[in-house]
Structures are given as structure tokens and as C-alpha cells.
């Protein structure tokens, strides 16, 4: 599944907010890469800089310094509309809050039609409707029930599935999943995660999970990057890090996260 071709590489990526004394190095000299068909996690607690890294990769925020290289091309300072559209055809995202990810004034049909604009302007209405129905079915939703609904009429799990359907319509090479299940109940979480992992098997999509949930990162990812105050403190094979953490921060993290088979000394 994982191919040896590199898809995305970031080099010495840095983002500083504010200036002078109140300066914050949200992302501090971060370098990593992800291969085609690979699933990785940027794992960190709040304030670790993981979400800023995601926004930098998505070109929602310009970096202070460093490079982002996608399929061998430096896209760090790409800014023309045409080039950005091309990039977003290849790199997409789903976000944490399945409610605020939706414009409440749009029906689900409109949300998905908007996504198709990115694919091609010249698809007929009937074709679009067909494509939309197909992706809804593949994320386990009934198109007839869902299409004319508004986001607030659906549960969090259903809304996140629609965001997945949106990704399926665009079918990017890389998906940035920013805490995709942290606001979803345990019973729906498994479904969303399994669907996400299915994207790799079916389309060879690479996924970057941005998460604080070590269990999730371990379950889904091939490799982990542990972030703390803007820096990557440990990286490597997921199994290896969980069984044998090297960095002190990672060790502490693994010690404090509640697990089932080893009970805390309190």
C-alpha cells in the first residue's frame, strides 16, 4: 500500500505569531515527509503547533520560513489562484468540528456541489447528481434522506461522513484530517476512522492525522511524529514508539494516557 515515492516534504518549516516580546514560535523548524499511500499522525497536546502545521500545509496560512515541497515542486510561495486551485485539487482536509465545518445556510446537496466546482466546471447537472449519490452511498448515507437536509438536522457522525463524501468527490492525493473524531461519540468514531483508512486502500490516498489522541494515532498510522512546543521531539514507526518510546516527553505522554490493561498507581 505504501509506495516509496515521496508525496509531501516540509523542510525547516517555521511560523511565528506576534512580534517582539510576545512572539510565539508556534511551529519551530519542523521537517518531515510523507510517502504516497502512507498514513501518519502529528501527535501533540494543545499548543504543540500541530494545527498550525496543518494550516501551513493546506496553504491557509503563510509560513515565516521553510519550504513545503509537494510532488517534487516547491509550493511554499505559490499564490496565483490557478496554482492554488491545482494544489487544493490534490490536498484536501476535514476538520474537527463537524458543525462549524458547514455553512448552515446550505443544503447538503449544495455543499457537495460546491466541492465539484473544484473537480471540473463542465459536468452536467445529472452527472453531478449521480456522482454525489454515489459518494454518499459509499460513506454509508442514504442520499434520498440526506440531500435536501441542512447540517443542523444531522448528527455529528453523519456530518463528518458528509465531509468525507466531499473528500471522495475531490479525491485528493493527500488528506489532512485535523482531529476528525474528537467531537464525535465513541460509537460513531470507529465508523469514521475505518472509512478514512479505507480511503488509502481504495485510492492510495495519503493521510496526515492531526490529533492529541494517542490511541487514535496508534490505531490508524504507519508512522508518528510527536510534537511538543512547536518542535517534533520524536518520530518513527507507530508500533516502535508505543512499545519503546525514547524521548522523555513521549514517555510521560504514554504514562499519563489512560489504558485498559495496566492500572495507574494513584
Amino acid at each position: 500500500m505504501v509506495e516509496d515515492r515521496e508525496l509531501l516534504r516540509v523542510e525547516n518549516l517555521t511560523r511565528i505569531f506576534g512580534s517582539g516580546k510576545s512572539q510565539v514560535r508556534a511551529v519551530d523548524n519542523v521537517s518531515f515527509s510523507i510517502k504516497e499511500g502512507e498514513i501518519v499522525s502529528l501527535l501533540g497536546e494543545s499548543g504543540s503547533g500541530k494545527t498550525t502545521t496543518a494550516r501551513l500545509i493546506l496553504k491557509l496560512l503563510p509560513p515565516t520560513s521553510g519550504k513545503i515541497i509537494f510532488r517534487g515542486k516547491d509550493i511554499t510561495y505559490v499564490s496565483s489562484r490557478k496554482e492554488l486551485l491545482n494544489y487544493w485539487r490534490e490536498v484536501q482536509a476535514i476538520f474537527q468540528d463537524p458543525f462549524s465545518s458547514f455553512n448552515i445556510f446550505y443544503s447538503i446537496r449544495r455543499v457537495l456541489n460546491n466541492a465539484l466546482r473544484l473537480v471540473s466546471e463542465s459536468i452536467s447537472r445529472e452527472e453531478r447528481e449521480e456522482m454525489i449519490k454515489e459518494v454518499l452511498l459509499s460513506v454509508g448515507l442514504n442520499p434520498a434522506e440526506i440531500l435536501d437536509k441542512r447540517p443542523y438536522e444531522l448528527s455529528g457522525g453523519q456530518r463528518q461522513r458528509i465531509m468525507l463524501a466531499r473528500v471522495l468527490l475531490i479525491r485528493p492525493k493527500l488528506l489532512v484530517a485535523d482531529e476528525p473524531t474528537s467531537m464525535i461519540d465513541a460509537s460513531s468514531r470507529a465508523g469514521i476512522l475505518n472509512l478514512l483508512m479505507e480511503l488509502r486502500n481504495a485510492y492510495g490516498m495519503s493521510i496526515i492525522f492531526i490529533t492529541h489522541d494517542i490511541g487514535l494515532a496508534y490505531y490508524t498510522s504507519d508512522r508518528l511524529f510527536i510534537m511538543n512546543s512547536g518542535k517534533i521531539v520524536e518520530e518513527g514507526d507507530a508500533e516502535e514508539i508505543i512499545n519503546n518510546p525514547k524521548d522523555d516527553y513521549t514517555k510521560k505522554l504514554l504514562e499519563d494516557v489512560p489504558v485498559i490493561h495496566r492500572k495507574w498507581e494513584l
Binding site: V91, A93, F95, N114
Partner: peptide, 14 residues
């Protein structure tokens, strides 16, 4: 700062 704004941006809205 709402997430649907980010979604619209990466959908290429002007």
C-alpha cells in the same frame, strides 16, 4: 475563524 470558512477556501471560493 469558523471551519466552514476554511472549507470554502480550500474549495477555491473567491
Amino acid at each position: 475563524t469558523r471551519e466552514h470558512i476554511d472549507i470554502a477556501r480550500i474549495t477555491g471560493f473567491s
